[in-house]
Amino acid sequence: MSRRRVHLTFQGQLADEPALWNMSQEFGLVFNIRQADLEGGFGWVMLELEGGDDQLEAAVRWLEGRGVIVAPIEQDIVAG
């Protein structure tokens, strides 16, 4: 089992569906929200994900496919 700390930006997705719950069911992941700021479906969530490496990768791609921006907890690392 691996753990990954991620920063997610939602752009309306949370208004329509329980995206994190769906993700955890779909890929068998445990998630733990550490901080969040959401307003009308838009906002960000910092959470820790726990599960198999392949499941973690698949979950990231699944979220991205739904328009969620998935960044490491440090957000943009690639600097100018």
Partner: peptide, 11 residues
């Protein structure tokens, strides 16, 4: 992609 580079560096 930029996002993939970003995540890889964190890992």
């Amino acid at each position: 992609t930029y996002d993939e580079v970003n995540r890889l560096c964190s890992e």
